[in-house]
Design a protein around this nucleic acid. Structure first.
Lengths: 170, 170
DNA sequence: TATATTTGATATGTTGCATAACAATTATCG
DNA sequence: CGATAATTGTTATGCAACATATCAAATATA
């Protein structure tokens, strides 16, 4: 049992540095308490993971956000823009140009709803389904494979569980 | 032992949705494979954690990025802008306006180095040290306290370890 | 019917992040 | 030494993400 002390930040030293000269030449910069800041590690990890995702799925030219939209449209066909945008945490005004991009590539379509002629029913096109299927394969075979390499499968699951808990209960 | 299957994405169904009508009325939108995408969970968790950080440290008006700069300056006095910016993953041009903000609030100072008159030696002011000390207390007592509530201390440590592994080995 | 709400859209602003270019200074090399 | 290259901080600029206000059309509600 590795007993790592719980208190993360250590507010002891006050560093009375009044010397106007340069720093300790040659040695590396110390992260210090920064390495215990969850937000810092979270952001750095997120950037890395997004970078890897973009690389893995580069042949299809899909960003993580676009991929998530296509996933939602496949699982929830016939929803309108507000519903899809809301579940992804995207504001409706910003979702418009996103859909413009996907629709101009003929990956999805907007159709006026017959029930409520204000809203647009969103649907994947065949091309959209095809691209999404290929994207999934790349994500599984490259992106998640790399992740399982680094973390190990069981750690990946545990990590996901903790992140979801944060996203929900925080 | 909860045997959760390792393969995250499940590329089986093809959803032959050709109905131009609306979706399954009334029921909630299903996230589907999205909940298995690490990048998605990572980003949502990161946004939540940053939001909480900003709230907790609001009385001092410090963003996570500003806090991390002050932490680095305290631990590594006398470094120049390039060194600090690099270790934080901030591009030098963008670090200029960041320092402008901190310096205009008198939290740190730039002094021309006597060794190399191109570079600026960065140092915390007394006010900067004071604000940083108060910020640390808020982070520990509010931000990390909340995190330990949600995750539990040992999970927090495990989470940090995995995130750092991703940030390093990915 | 009159008023309020919802939906998609536009305009606009802010912020984070990236690149090119520049003057001043320093390092390198012929 | 002197010419050239590299470094440091800076400015300008562009792009993408994110946020707010506002609008017309359609619908809901009073």
């Amino acid at each position: 049992m590795t007993v790592s002390k719980t208190p993360a930040l250590d507010l002891t030293k006050t560093v009375r540095g009044s010397a106007p000269a340069d720093a300790g030449e040659g040695d590396a910069i110390k992260l210090g308490e920064l390495s215990e800041l969850l937000g810092y590690s979270l952001k750095r990890a997120q950037l890395k993971v997004f970078d890897d995702f973009i690389r893995c799925v580069a042949p299809l030219q899909l960003t993580p956000a676009q991929f998530s939209v296509l996933l939602l449209l496949e699982r929830n066909p016939g929803r309108n823009q507000t519903e899809i945008a809301n579940t992804l945490g995207i504001l409706r005004p910003n979702f418009v140009s996103m859909l413009d991009g996907l629709e101009s590539r003929e990956l999805c379509v907007r159709m006026r709803s017959t029930n409520d002629r204000r809203s647009h029913v969103l649907m994947l096109t065949d091309k959209g389904r095809s691209i999404l299927a290929r994207a999934k394969k790349l994500v599984v075979s490259k992106h998640e494979a790399r992740l399982n390499e680094v973390l190990g499968p069981e750690n990946r699951v545990a990590l996901l569980a903790m992140l979801d808990k944060i996203a929900r209960d925080f």
